[in-house]
Design a protein around this nucleic acid. Structure first.
Lengths: 352, 352
DNA sequence: TTGAAAGCGCTAACAT
DNA sequence: ATGTTAGCGCTTTCAA
């Protein structure tokens, strides 16, 4: 009738290890947390005891006293006020773009060696946003890595106002005092312009991203500016929404109005892929008749035919840097808001 | 010189609420946890006090005493022994298939209304697998939702051996006593076969998934079986790996050997899309010259041209069901291992 | 119906 | 260098 036998797996505690090693809880704690000033012989004894008992620290107990959850939130945030069904579509749609998978990979790549793992949250509605803020406020996570899909996203401002540690992917709209990593989008667009011009294109058009997304806006501006400097003051532009479909539609419009075009700069790879598809349908060869340059160097750049010449955005490294900055700010709350801008790189493949 | 003023945001505790409401901690706790036998007037007083103080329960403290983390792990698991760089590629690659995004969306869709959020973990190496087991053992998460990419994945067996609550997406290889949700893949393949045959195709071929993945295997078997029953004992098959590229290559091979083929069943949409691309390159019209049926009804089915006729796998619902089963098993540890099989559905669009 | 009190497992002063 | 002790914020008997 003993209760002990009923317990499925009573995890050993510090106390158990201490008893096994013949020392106090405090000493065991010191060894486990790597604090020096512990006799080497005792350290060994403790380590043996840990191994013998199969001890693993209880995260809740530790979090309670240290006031650190040792957890961070990875939140994908929209600007909407969606219904529940729409939220699911949002979540599924987010991953349809290879971009988010790269962010997740970069974040996990940084966190895992440190034995940390991100909590995945979607914040596409006011309720969901409140949930995120609360989650952080109550200390369930020590900070947030935020990827916004829209410029009007109110979450960054909410987080900043609450004084919670966070780092964004891409500069926030407005003057939100919050750290972020970003890419020098304009420089990337300039790389594309130079490449297209250098290979002899003279009738260029561009498929831009949504005007209200900073990345889309800046890539367009950078491209127009670079072209203007080389003597091309006007570039036909069609706006897409970073999806394959929108790239196809934009390309079709451009082709109808400018049948003699010989080069396309698309603001991301997915739209560039769409452009290639439509170009082929209209009997244009890529790159012989029309050269196409994408942006991002995402997985579709290599799965698309022909392989896309594109501007590389090192998303994984940028995401890892976000995690690093956040951790730094969690550990040293006094640290000022900062930003890290990455430089793009031209990757020449077959499409241009 | 008071310490209090230095604290950035001392969160209110139960004690604070109790004081504000003029009752004891225990009573506040009862109200918050919805336990009856509390005077309605006091309930109101407590609720007011909660609102006034802005109280939020501290998850670590609660977890410590209830022995529940109120957290579950969402783990994407491979079978490999990859280097760190390969792990990152694995993580990014996993998301390249729209499948995983749908799983995440389904899981979050179920969890979020319950104020829970999944911890994202990748387990592609022995170390990473140990990390997952440890994470669960130490109670950082109450259970795991596991999506394996390979049949030889040792993680399910490890989890089962440790007696930890878990639910898999897809039946595990071998005889691992662990719950799972799955699709009746064979039935889905039969739907595809019947549709292709009914529309008049007589020279069918199939692009199969990897032989060592149950889903790939079963879809092929189901297709072959259905064809045999209709008098077609031999169906040319080319094996792919569920990627767009592999679909293209398989289609090219099939086309070379069977130039007169008039119908293709691909084991997933990505490969079906690849098939369409290659077919078009070879001057075949889809569906006029060659009909193509995919599998999954993922986002590419609608982004691909022509829109894919496909067999729908309700991934989001299946993922939500995984979460439900897991929660049920966490709350009632005695529950037996179970399985839930979903029925596929034919979605007719343009490609067949 | 409510309150008092005993921990959950751990860290961090403080003592020694 | 090590041990003692006092909580962290919460839930949950046990009394009243």
């Amino acid at each position: 009738m003993s209760r002990e036998t009923e317990a499925p797996a009573a995890m050993p505690t510090l106390e158990d290890v201490a008893r096994a090693a013949g020392v106090s809880r405090a000493t065991v704690s010191r060894v486990i947390n790597g604090i020096r000033n512990v006799d080497p012989a005792i350290q060994d004894a403790v380590r043996d005891a840990v191994a013998a008992t199969g001890y693993t620290p209880n995260r809740a107990a530790r979090a309670l006293v240290t006031r650190r959850a040792e957890t961070i939130a990875l939140v994908v945030s929209g600007a909407g006020d969606a219904s529940e069904a729409e939220q699911n579509a949002f979540a599924a749609g987010v991953f349809a773009d290879p971009f988010f998978g790269r962010v997740a990979a970069g974040v996990v790549g940084y966190l895992r060696p440190r034995s940390m793992h991100p909590v995945l949250m979607f914040a596409e509605t006011p309720d969901a946003r409140d949930q995120v803020v609360n989650y952080l406020r109550q200390g369930s996570a020590d900070g947030a890595l935020i990827v916004s899909t829209h410029a009007e996203d109110p979450l960054p401002a909410m987080i900043a106002a609450a004084g919670l540690p966070a780092v964004l992917f891409a500069r926030p709209a407005g003057l939100v005092p919050i750290s972020y990593v970003d890419l020098a989008h304009q420089d990337g667009a300039k790389l594309a312009a130079a490449h297209l011009l250098d290979r002899g294109c003279r009738n260029l058009v561009t498929i831009a991203g949504p005007r209200d997304v900073a990345a889309g806006h800046e890539r367009l501006e950078g491209f127009q500016d670079a072209m203007a400097r080389r003597g091309f003051p006007y570039i036909p532009v069609a706006e897409g929404s970073f999806t394959l479909r929108s790239g196809e539609e934009a390309m079709a419009r451009l082709l109808a109005e400018h049948p003699d075009l010989d080069g396309v700069f698309a603001a991301n790879d997915l739209m560039a892929q769409g452009a290639c598809l439509v170009l082929r349908e209209h009997g244009k060869r890529v790159p012989e008749d029309v050269a196409v340059v994408g942006f991002d160097d995402s997985s579709v750049a290599r799965s698309s035919r022909p392989h896309l010449t594109t501007v590389r955005q090192p998303v994984e490294e940028m995401a890892a840097e976000m995690a690093r900055l956040l951790q730094e700010r969690i550990e040293q709350p006094g640290l000022p808001v900062t930003s890290v801008i990455f430089e793009p790189e031209l990757v020449v493949r077959e499409s241009a």
